[in-house]
């Protein structure tokens, strides 16, 4: 009985979500525990289509854990994640990415031994229709698919300005371009929602400036919704429309960049702690 009511409630919920087309991601009361450690506690967030939201907080606040829950690396201990109206909680990462959520990693995780072009092409593989036998016997369908894939890959690289490096081994790229390639690889999955985990980490000011422009460009060009983890306040305050602050797994504030800059709790938890650390 109770279960039924839950199901009904859930389906109404889902229907409502589908109607309000501008809500793309809705995280409801997600809690993630690792043994006794509560990495994320009762985290809720909803994002409108086309929004650029920043997720900030001191180290170990649980930001990346939130990403891992959204993309399916972790199944939350409690709560659920709705994407485009569908409950995607607990689906494996390779399925979630096909639904339209792509991510980058905090420490760049490229396929270092593969070429720049191949890195991007891997992302197209999940959409391939021909079987491995067709690949081995090089049927017309497979060759056409490969050709189309390659063309798309080169187009994408051109758009992100990496075309001239297409045949370079990814591991040999300078750091800034590796970051850029990682974003390109995520874009190749044609996401609706892009999760960027500290994209500016380790970049010099010039690279950071380029990155900010790049993020805004791709957001407009591909009509993306972006959730961004970043420590570089210059980036966060510069491009995010809304910022959520996490501390010890708990949301402590949310608001526009200006509001966050003047929020006492944030200054205490985040900036204040830094000051103390330097003192």
């Amino acid at each position: 009985m109770d279960k039924d009511r839950n199901r009904v409630a859930r389906s109404i919920d889902t229907a409502v979500l589908r109607d309000s087309q501008d809500e793309i991601l809705k995280i409801e009361h997600v809690t993630m525990k690792f043994g006794g450690l509560i990495a994320v506690n009762d985290f809720s967030l909803s994002m409108k289509r086309g929004e650029l939201v920043g997720l900030i907080g001191p180290n170990g606040a649980g930001k990346t854990t939130v990403f891992n829950v959204i993309t399916g690396q972790y199944t939350p201990s409690d709560g659920r994640v709705l994407f485009d109206g569908d409950d995607i909680t607990g689906l494996p990462p390779d399925i979630i990415v096909t639904r339209g959520i792509a991510r980058t990693f905090q420490n760049v995780r490229l396929f270092n031994g593969l070429t720049v072009l191949d890195n991007v092409l891997v992302s197209y593989h999940s959409r391939i229709r021909s079987s491995f036998l067709e690949a081995v016997f090089r049927t017309k369908r497979h060759l056409e698919e490969e050709k189309a894939m390659r063309q798309n890959g080169i187009d994408l690289l051109r758009q992100v300005g990496l075309e001239h490096l297409a045949n370079e081994e990814a591991g040999n790229l300078p750091y800034g371009q590796q970051r850029r390639l990682e974003i390109a690889r995520a874009l190749a999955t044609s996401p609706k929602l892009l999760l960027l985990d500290e994209p500016a980490a380790g970049m010099n000011p010039e690279e950071t400036r380029q990155l900010m422009k790049f993020i805004q460009d791709i957001r407009d060009k591909y009509a993306l919704t972006i959730l961004l983890i970043e420590h570089d306040m210059h980036v966060v305050m510069g491009i995010c429309e809304r910022i959520r602050v996490l501390d010890y797994g708990i949301s402590i504030a949310e608001g526009s960049p200006v509001e966050i800059q003047h929020n006492q709790r944030v200054i205490q938890a985040y900036l204040g702690e830094e000051e103390r650390a330097y003192a």
Partner: peptide, 13 residues
Amino acid sequence: REDEVAAEAMGIN
């Protein structure tokens, strides 16, 4: 071979 986590995140089963 290069990175299982990244491969899975890019849609490889």
